[in-house]
Design a protein around this nucleic acid. Structure first.
Length: 966
DNA sequence: TCAGACACGTA
DNA sequence: CGTACGTGTCTGAA
């Protein structure tokens, strides 16, 4: 089932022509291009926003139509088409030709009839249809699966005409629209309507008499002047109706399937756009195209060598010192194999792809020695963090001891030992020792070489280029940026019969597989080598392309100096983990469990039945049907039962069920949180999260598996969970305390810095409570006279501003009238005009450039800022307001993390960083190091940037995360 | 079994 | 009709 986009070429070009000032759009040769520009721009927007699968543009071909034959005055009286316009039609056709868009015409008919016919065909084929036209006759096509996008205000905005929208605007359903138009007339077609009859009257009649035919039949019954006028003009009304009926049975000789969106001819587009001197438009077009399936040429074909001993040096010699090589670890078995969720896999070497295209799988020891040597390469990986974990485990397991990059593993039983059995099972080919023939010499160099890996990471590079993408899958990037498919065998999965897996082979082609166990194991290993080899080769090529792209976006330093070092630091945070008091958590679970049962029991007693309290559907039945409570805010599937709504309901009904329900919700959630944490405690009593570095479009980290960035803190009961995160031990012995350090009001400080607003800057240097200070300005009272109510209003507004909050939103949040909210905002902007100017400027700049930027130049691209769809556009505007602020805060804490770790390492301290929670760092401090660590943290965080306002850092200490909070 | 909707925790 | 996330449950479709 697809979506067909049909565009009325003439109608839109015409609109564009009159909407855009010709003098601003002409090429150096004097060719006027305003219509071409407006038309193309609109088309790109619609392609981007609506993502049609099929596409055609209809044009009128001749003046001689059946309508003209019936009514010689049809469309008469139009002023002659200016030559500046008609001259642009061939250019539009050129653009469409280059884009491979099918153009459809029919001799003797209008574009509307073509569109109507194609609409019918597409509907019969089961497709949805979108029609873009400035001709209102098309409204008759609208139904639940056909939408007309009708331009308003030139071509800058399109109105979505659904059946509901047609009814709302004209008072008649879409199929009756032509009846209405026949009565009212259509000036642009020179079809006069009934004098004295406007849309209101026409709609009334049509509804009353069930259509135009009924109106005509009852003509004599219609009273008044309008009725009289109608009777005099019945003939022309009926003629209008004949003329505005669109034809759906033209012999076009086109099948809908032929309209499937074609592959793009990039060269042709470049040529045409060069001629038209469209620069920005070309970028927008390619951005849109790049989001679609690009054309793909061949795949990668590599020969994978497995050099050993002497052969290793021979192979590595082909790589110049410092050259960038792609690398991908070869796992002895897949991580996702059945029954082994997230179990560390053994390493069976590392595939490396040399600049000359040759690929080898090196044993871990050989690779690390090579990297550590003076003529070692620069390794580039894709999503290096999990691979670095595997490498570090492998090195540890081979007797190298904890690595600098991974010094926290103090329990060898969790580090990847115990996979020997599997190695044996897949061929017995275990890796050789990291330590070479020359004994332990060089082990230290090898260890530090891992600490410096990787030199590049293509997933980070891709993320910095386009941080809004959902995933940075190597195969997708390869298709998008290299135009090559990544055909790799799926890794052999543990737990499934190897024979079955291998019989499929690459590309599903049968492979020659002998059936001795040794042969099967060799074949499985060869497949894993090939897979990793192909990926390494892709990484090497992708690296070059993405570095170029990143350079254009001025993000090279961000990658090299921030994200890559941070990735290495995150490896350490993740492998360190944070200690938990399991006993405490187990007691807490029991406690919450009692609360859950008790709340459920009381809730059931109130309603005399045992429903599933976790089912919004069942809750809706009980609340709104059984108990007949007032309806709450609508959701897609009914009425909301969220906590805020339940609280409101309680205030109006005082029904005790609601309290028990809220209590149940709260308790069940806390129990779930604790259970999740308990489930992820490792054998050493520590919890290890995974920090995602390429997920948040603003540049923040995120935490998963478990998420340690959303541990409760707001409620007393929830905070008890934080007491379960405690100070632990390392290999040397127990550490002393947990340290929590957070930035206070980081986002507001960034706002002050970026806006340069004098008042706000002063607020941070005045030594007064921020919100009290702001409140005194807004309400024009002495700071001491700012009431707590004033303070909380101002606080909500200040933070809301960074999110693009509207007066409406503010009124809803504060439960005050919209007018009061608006007054509050006006007053705020009056006092802090710099903030207003800044916020306005951010959106304007982003619309012009296409992106926002943070303090460190991290960009976020927001193409929807020019969308014709108001919802999308306004959503993008709010993102544009927030991205520089949230993103700059993310920049700062990342810088701070690196600064802090740099000092901890330089001074060889045992204390270590455990968690990052957006504006907070959690550390574990070793005995005797407290003062020094506190200095380092205060200096590292406070000095992360030199802003117009000071960066204030609060530090707390305690045996648990709760105790360390302040 | 999977995706979407809902609800809710954090900054 | 306030940004950025992750996780759990329920539900209906596949």
């Amino acid at each position: 089932m697809g979506r067909l986009l049909l565009v009325d070429g003439h109608s839109l070009a015409y609109r564009a022509f009159y909407a855009l000032p010709a003098e601003n759009f002409s090429t150096s040769t004097g060719q006027v291009t305003n219509a071409v520009y407006g038309f193309t721009s609109m088309l790109i927007n619609v392609l981007r926003d609506e993502e049609p699968t099929h596409l055609a543009v209809a044009f009128d071909v001749s003046k001689q139509t059946f309508r003209l034959a019936e009514y010689p005055e049809y469309k008469a009286g139009r002023s002659a088409t200016p030559t500046e316009f008609s001259g642009q039609i061939p250019l539009i056709r050129e653009v469409l030709g280059a884009m491979g868009v099918r153009m459809v015409t029919a001799e003797g008919f209008e574009a509307d009839d073509v569109i109507c016919t194609l609409t019918r065909q597409a509907r019969e084929a089961g497709h949805d249809v979108l029609v873009v036209t400035g001709d209102r006759d098309a409204f008759q096509l609208v139904d639940d699966r056909t939408t007309v996008l009708y331009p308003v205000r030139g071509v800058s905005e399109l109105t979505r005409m659904t059946p509901e929208a047609v009814v709302a605007r004209y008072g008649v359903p879409p199929e009756r629209y032509p009846d209405l138009a026949a009565l009212v007339g259509e000036t642009s077609d020179n079809l006069p309507g009934v004098p004295g009859v406007g849309p209101k009257t026409a709609a009334k009649w049509i509804t009353q008499y069930d259509g135009l035919a009924g109106v005509v039949a009852h003509a004599d019954a219609i009273k008044g002047k309008a009725g009289e006028s109608f009777r005099e003009h019945i003939a022309s009304v009926e003629r209008n109706r004949r003329l505005n009926r669109l034809l759906d049975d033209l012999p076009l000789g086109v099948e809908v399937e032929e309209l499937r969106r074609p592959g793009w001819d990039r060269d042709a587009i470049h040529q045409v756009f060069d001629g038209l001197e469209f620069r920005v438009l070309r970028e927008r077009l390619f951005e849109t195209l790049d989001n679609d399936e690009p054309e793909v040429t061949g795949g990668f074909s590599v020969e994978v060598a497995r050099p050993r001993g002497e052969e290793v040096g021979a192979w590595t010699a082909r790589v110049p010192a410092g050259a960038r090589v792609g690398a991908e670890v070869v796992l002895a078995a897949d991580l996702t194999g059945p029954g082994s969720p997230a179990r560390p896999a053994a390493l069976d070497g590392v595939a490396v792809a040399a600049p000359d295209g040759s690929v080898a799988v090196l044993h871990v020891g050989d690779l690390l020695r090579w990297v550590a040597s003076p003529d070692g390469p620069a390794l580039v990986m894709h999503d290096a963090k999990p691979q670095l974990h595997a490498l570090a485990r492998a090195a540890w397991a081979r007797g190298l001891g904890p690595l600098a990059a991974d010094a926290a593993d103090d329990d060898p039983t969790t580090t990847g030992e115990g996979h020997d059995g599997r190695d044996g099972g897949t061929g017995g080919a275990t890796d050789d020792d990291v330590v070479g023939e020359d004994g332990t010499t060089g082990a230290r160099a090898v260890a530090s070489s891992i600490a410096g890996l990787p030199s590049g990471d293509t997933s980070l590079a891709a993320y910095l280029c386009r941080p809004d993408q959902r995933s940075y899958d190597l195969a997708d990037l390869s298709v998008r940026h290299l135009g090559r498919t990544l055909v790799t065998a799926e890794p052999v999965v543990e737990g499934q019969p190897v024979e079955e897996q291998l019989s499929l082979g690459l590309d599903g082609a049968a492979e020659q597989v002998e059936d001795t166990p040794e042969d099967l194991a060799d074949a499985a290993r060869a497949r894993r080598d090939l897979r990793a080899g192909i990926r390494a080769a892709a990484v090497a090529e992708l690296d070059a392309v993405l570095l170029g792209e990143l350079e254009e976006r001025e993000g090279t330093a961000l990658l090299a100096d921030l994200e890559l070092p941070l990735e290495r630091l995150l490896v350490r945070l993740e492998s360190t983990g944070i200690a938990v008091d399991v006993e405490h958590l187990e007691q807490l679970r029991e406690h919450y469990d009692v609360r859950v049962s008790e709340a459920a029991r009381l809730a059931y007693a109130e309603i005399d039945e045992e429903i599933n309290l976790g089912s919004p559907k069942q809750l809706q039945r009980v609340l709104f049907e059984k108990l007949e409570m007032p309806k709450t805010k609508r959701t897609k599937t009914g009425f909301t039962t969220d906590a805020e709504a339940l609280q409101d309901l309680y205030e109006s009904t005082e029904h005790p069920f609601l309290l028990h329900l809220l209590e149940h919700r709260d308790a069940i959630r806390l129990r779930q949180t604790v259970e999740g944490l308990l489930a992820s405690v490792g054998e050493d009593g520590r919890i290890r999260t995974t920090f995602q570095q390429t997920i948040a479009a603003t540049g923040r980290l995120s935490s998963t598996d478990p998420n340690l960035q959303n541990i409760p803190i707001r409620t007393e009961e929830g905070r008890r969970i934080r007491s379960g995160f405690v100070v632990g031990s390392d290999a040397t012995g127990p550490l002393e305390t947990i340290m929590s350090a957070d930035y206070s009001q980081i986002e507001m400080r960034i706002m002050a810095h970026l806006s340069g607003d004098e008042g706000l800057v002063e607020a941070f240097t005045a030594g007064e409570d921020l919100h009290r200070f702001v409140g005194s300005r807004v309400f024009q009272v002495e700071p001491a006279d700012v009431s707590s109510e004033m303070r909380s209003k101002v606080k909500a507004m200040s933070y809301g501003l960074a999110y693009g909050l509207s007066a409406f939103g503010l009124s809803r949040q504060l439960r005050i009238p919209v007018d009061e909210a608006r007054g509050l905002m006006d007053e705020y902007f009056m006092r802090f005009g710099g903030v207003r100017d800044y916020l306005r400027g951010v959106v304007d700049q982003a619309r012009k450039d296409g992106w926002t930027a943070t303090l460190l130049g991290r960009r976020r691209y927001l193409p929807d800022l020019t969308s014709d769809n108001r919802q999308r556009r306004e959503a993008a505007e709010r993102m544009a307001l927030n991205a520089p602020i949230q993103g700059s805060a993310a920049d700062l804490i990342k810088v701070a993390m690196l600064r802090v770790q740099e000092r901890l390492d330089a001074e060889d301290l045992r204390s270590r960083m455990l968690l990052q929670v957006h504006d907070e760092l959690v550390l574990e401090v070793a005995p005797g190091e407290l003062d020094r660590v506190q200095e380092i943290v205060l200096e590292g965080m406070g000095g992360a940037a030199d802003l117009a306002v000071p960066l204030e850092v609060q530090v707390g200490l305690g045996r648990s995360w709760f105790d360390a909070a302040h």
